Amino acid sequence: MDERFEGIPIHYSTTYRDDPEGVQIRRQMLAEKRETLKTLREMSDDQIREYMTEKWSARYSDDAKRLDKALNRLEGTSGTKLIDAITKELDAQRAENRTLKEQAITAEFDQHIGVLKETWDTILPDLKK
């Protein structure tokens, strides 16, 4: 470490990468996932498909392509594979959920990485000489 920084504490934090609202939303989605899976335990495969079709139709009412993708997970599955498919969809929903602030943070990071890549591409030929 540079001696100019001796005695100066360095704090590492990842809180700037999160939007507390987004974290809370995904925490709530996790609780809803647990509750949904608990509810499904008492149902037959046909009842599960009907229940999840209704839930996902409401969730994706404005996105037919995404609804088709979700419903395709249910096709040709039964028993534990059906539950696994539902779990994957619920996990995907949670992973895809980002607030506007989180989207802006991601865009900013992407921009910074793009600039770093451009810089690296510029200096790399000189480093190879």
Rank of each mutant, 00 (worst) to 15 (best):
E108Y: 08
P125Y: 03
I86Y: 07
T36R: 05
R41G: 09
I25L: 09
I48A: 04
I8K: 10
A70C: 04
K69M: 12
L30R: 10
D2K: 02
Q93I: 07
R66A: 15
M1G: 15
E108R: 14
G76V: 07
K65S: 10
D110E: 15
A70G: 00
E108H: 10
E32A: 08
D63N: 15
T77N: 11
E108N: 11
M52N: 03
E89D: 03
R73E: 14
L82R: 07
A58F: 04
D18V: 13
D84Y: 13
A92C: 04
S61F: 15
R27C: 01
L124C: 03
L82M: 04
R26S: 02
K129M: 09
E102C: 03
M1D: 01
R49D: 01
D62Q: 07
K55Q: 13
E118W: 00
L67E: 01
L37I: 08
Q47E: 13
L37C: 05
K65E: 10
V115H: 12
T39V: 07
S57I: 09
D110C: 08
A107H: 06
K117Y: 02
K33P: 03
R17L: 15
I10G: 04
R34K: 13
D121N: 10
T119C: 10
T87L: 08
S61E: 11
A64D: 11
Y12R: 13
A95Q: 10
L71Q: 01
L74W: 05
R27F: 08
T14A: 09
W120L: 15
R59Y: 14
R27N: 08
E54L: 06
T39E: 12
G76H: 00
K129V: 13
S78A: 06
D19N: 08
I123T: 05
S61Q: 12
Q93N: 10
Y16V: 12
E6K: 12
H112L: 15
W120K: 13
Q24K: 15
D2I: 07
D46V: 08
R49I: 04
D121W: 01
A31Y: 07
L71C: 05
T39R: 07
G22K: 03
A64F: 09
I113H: 08
A31T: 07
K33D: 02
I113F: 13
I113V: 14
K65L: 13
E32P: 00
K88Q: 15
D19H: 05
E3P: 14
K65A: 12
T14F: 05
M43V: 08
D84L: 14
E32M: 08
D18Q: 14
K101W: 06
G76W: 03
Y12E: 09
I10P: 00
S44H: 02
Y51D: 10
Y12C: 09
Y51K: 07
D63H: 11
E42I: 13
R17P: 00
A95F: 06
T119D: 12
S13V: 06
M43G: 03
A92T: 09
M29Y: 05
M43D: 05
E21W: 06
H112V: 09
E102K: 03
A107C: 02
P20D: 04
T106I: 12
S78Q: 15
D2M: 06
T122L: 14
